[in-house]
């Protein structure tokens, strides 16, 4: 528990997590307001539509989580950390717990914030949360954000450099996964097994069009969440494993 407190002090005593956290919430909520104001024509209004901009927040959270560890490598404090806590796995797991907790809260704020903003602007659109699926779409952002953050933390530990880790994460999550469909024949099938696609399937929101539902998917939404969780934890484990082997 003391390790978790130490990591909490570390995370909240610099400015960048605060800035990233506020940005991660403000960006998607603000864009949801824009979207809602123009909704009604092409865009079919359902719960899924309220979460269309959440991906913006998720990208910022990837940066937040990667920074939480790459800045330690950048400024050498990772050495002070390992000096204070020679059990590196324990130190990094404590960090993972704190980052997951914070980003989970951010995810919940984004999920409910976007939904509330949409509902405020379109009060008559029937956006009450009255099915399990509706709740999954909105509250599920907490799980997706936390898992995405753990994945980013793992990448951060592996890459160690802020610019490298952030570029890798953003280019992959924003571009590579959508571009994969350009591969003839197998592109679509490959995409069905990519991590951020999986996360989006759990939420039930399309990458480019909220209304289009893909029918022949290999996993159920909860199956996709589990799949995303396994990938995120695998990357984190790889990161922690390499940190215990490397010279600090």
């Amino acid at each position: 528990m003391s390790l978790v407190s130490a990591e909490r002090i570390k995370l909240f005593s610099t400015r960048s997590p605060w800035a990233c956290g506020l940005l991660a919430i403000a960006l998607p909520v603000a864009f949801t307001a824009l979207l809602a104001a123009q909704a009604g024509g092409d865009l079919e209004i359902d719960i899924g539509a309220t979460q269309l901009t959440a991906g913006l927040g998720r990208s910022v959270v990837l940066v937040l989580a990667a920074l939480a560890v790459t800045s330690e490598y950048r400024f050498g404090t990772i050495r002070s950390t390992f000096q204070a806590v020679p059990n590196r796995s324990a130190a990094l797991l404590a960090k993972a717990l704190v980052v997951a907790g914070l980003t989970g809260v951010i995810g919940a704020c984004v999920g409910f914030g976007c939904w509330a903003m949409f509902r405020l602007i379109k009060p008559n659109a029937g956006l009450a949360l009255d099915s399990g699926q509706d709740w999954r779409t909105v509250a599920g952002q907490a799980l997706v954000f936390a898992l995405a953050a753990l994945l980013a933390l793992g990448v951060g530990i592996l890459v160690r450099q802020t610019a490298g880790a952030v570029a890798l994460l953003l280019v992959y999550s924003l571009l590579v996964e959508s571009l994969v469909t350009l591969i003839p024949k197998v592109g679509q099938d490959i995409q069905h097994w990519l991590p951020f696609f999986a996360a989006d399937r759990f939420i039930g929101v399309g990458r480019d069009n909220g209304a289009r539902e893909v029918v022949d998917l290999p996993l159920t939404p909860w199956g996709y969440l589990l799949y995303f969780a396994v990938i995120a934890l695998a990357v984190l484990t790889a990161g922690i494993f390499s940190a215990t082997r490397r010279d600090a």
Binding site: K10, T14, R15, S16, E72, G76
Partner: peptide, 9 residues
């Protein structure tokens, strides 16, 4: 190393 401190902390 005295520089192993986060500059914003």
């Amino acid at each position: 190393d005295a520089k192993w401190v986060h500059p914003n902390r």
